[in-house]
């Protein structure tokens, strides 16, 4: 959690228009991912936002889940860039 911020719950998310839900999740995930990978934060967040909202909410509640998903996304991105 970012200090001073109320945790984003499933009901809070469900109350937001569908279009804004990904932005809301992104706003919460981005600083956490930036702390891990400052230069790749925007790209990694964008990649992760394409997965299901329930999984994204779980990542916000579980540092372990967030960390493993971020590292997997970084590995996929770096492998792709190495191929190119």
């Amino acid at each position: 959690h970012v200090r001073g911020q109320e945790p984003l719950t499933a009901s809070m998310l469900a109350a937001a228009p569908l279009k804004e839900q990904k932005q809301l999740l992104g706003e919460r995930l981005y600083p956490l991912i930036q702390a891990l990978h400052p230069t790749l934060a925007g790209k990694i967040t964008g990649m992760l936002l394409e997965i299901d909202n329930s999984e994204l909410l779980h990542m916000l509640e579980s540092p372990e889940s967030l960390h493993s998903k971020v590292e997997e996304a970084v590995a996929v991105l770096q492998a792709h860039q190495a191929k190119e």
């Binding site: 981005y30 990649m47 936002l49 394409e50 991105l77």
Partner: peptide
């Protein structure tokens, strides 16, 4: 985990935080 990795889209649009978001 393999399914998750396979689902990742490296061409996804980068996320841009909304710097004008209300507090």
């Amino acid at each position: 985990s393999k399914a998750f990795i396979a689902s990742l889209n490296v061409d996804a649009k980068p996320f841009v935080p909304n710097v004008h978001a209300a507090e």
